[in-house]
């Protein structure tokens, strides 16, 4: 393959990566933006989405039906678990940022152990709902991967509309600006928080269901998405939705292209150091406005 086709393939892979990443990262960004807490168990919600998708697909005989069932069942289940986590755990901690991090670290260990105990240590495949293959002159490409990009775009658009246009979105944004004022105006802040946390987790799970036919479900699979979501959210500016989307695109494409040309570990080292340095020298992110 020449350089041109290789670059095209890398760009395609990077776009798929960016789409999934944006979904997962938007969830993390939402919880940070609205609740000012960092959810370290975000990667485990992603993992749970994938593992549950496998479990559901096992129970349904036909591949397309199994996938659709997983898409409908796994994200709401994960969101429900997140809702319970918020009301029983985070609320008790008063959303203290440092305690929340410690508690969600504990939660992530629990969820990993749970997935290991119930589903075992093996990687579990889920069949794609269709096996269309697009034939380019130089290589064939999975039509399902392009479907993932499309689906992610649709969901992100829906999230955007939900936040900008719906009443619930307005309430969330109001709570983000000032939770005490929001409470004074009769907003049930507890429910907004639980809902935000559930929505964030549900988006991560949705991303995972979409990705499972490409990369299989495994109880340790939450680690990399968590790290990458962190990177995206920080580069994009903590809590900034638009920044998160732009950063997801950049990081996804960069990761897709760089890992074709360089060893993936090296790319990860550079990305990790970059994110630390962004936090140190430009804490508002590359796309956020400096705080006054």
């Amino acid at each position: 393959m020449g350089t041109g086709p290789l670059l095209l393939l890398a760009t395609l892979e990077g776009t798929v990566m960016a789409a999934v990443l944006a979904l997962a990262a938007v969830g993390l960004s939402l919880t940070f933006g609205v609740m000012r807490v960092v959810n370290v168990a975000h990667g485990e919600f992603y993992m749970l989405g994938a593992v549950l998708a496998w479990a559901v697909a096992q129970a349904v005989p036909s591949a397309p039906l199994g996938f659709v069932a997983a898409l409908l069942i796994a994200p709401p289940l994960v969101a429900a678990l997140a809702w319970v986590t918020d009301t029983t755990l985070l609320k008790r901690l008063n959303y203290d940022p440092e305690s929340t991090i410690v508690a969600t670290i504990g939660l992530s260990y629990l969820l990993q152990q749970g997935a290991l105990s119930f589903f075992g240590p093996d990687a579990r495949p889920v069949a794609a709902p269709f096996s269309l293959r697009l034939q380019f002159p130089w290589f064939g490409y999975s039509g399902y991967k392009l479907f993932v990009v499309l689906a992610a775009l649709l969901v992100l658009g829906a999230v955007w509309l939900f936040l900008r246009r719906s009443k619930a979105g307005l309430v969330m944004r109001a709570t983000q600006v000032d939770r005490n004022t929001a409470r004074a105006f009769g907003i049930n802040v507890d429910r907004v928080y639980a809902g935000t946390f559930a929505l964030g987790a549900g988006l991560a799970a949705l991303a995972a269901v979409l990705v499972v036919p490409i990369s299989q479900a495994h109880y340790l699979m939450g680690h990399d998405p968590l790290l990458l979501s962190f990177i995206v959210v920080i580069i994009g500016g903590l809590g900034s939705l638009r920044g998160t989307l732009i950063a997801a695109l950049i990081i996804g494409l960069a990761d897709g292209i760089l890992s074709m040309l360089y060893p993936p570990t090296l790319a990860k080292i550079v990305a990790t150091l970059a994110v630390a340095l962004v936090l140190v020298f430009r804490p508002q992110g590359l796309f956020g406005a400096p705080a006054r």
């Binding site: 755990l89 008790r92 901690l93 305690s99 410690v102 508690a103 670290i105 504990g106 939660l107 992530s108 260990y109 629990l110 969820l111 990993q112 152990q113 749970g114 290991l116 105990s117």
Partner: peptide
């Protein structure tokens, strides 16, 4: 009870902060 310390660590962490 379990073959991995993960759950013990997780429960202890959560119990402590709460």
């Amino acid at each position: 009870l379990t073959d991995s310390p993960l759950a013990v660590i997780g429960v202890t962490l959560i119990g402590l902060v709460v």
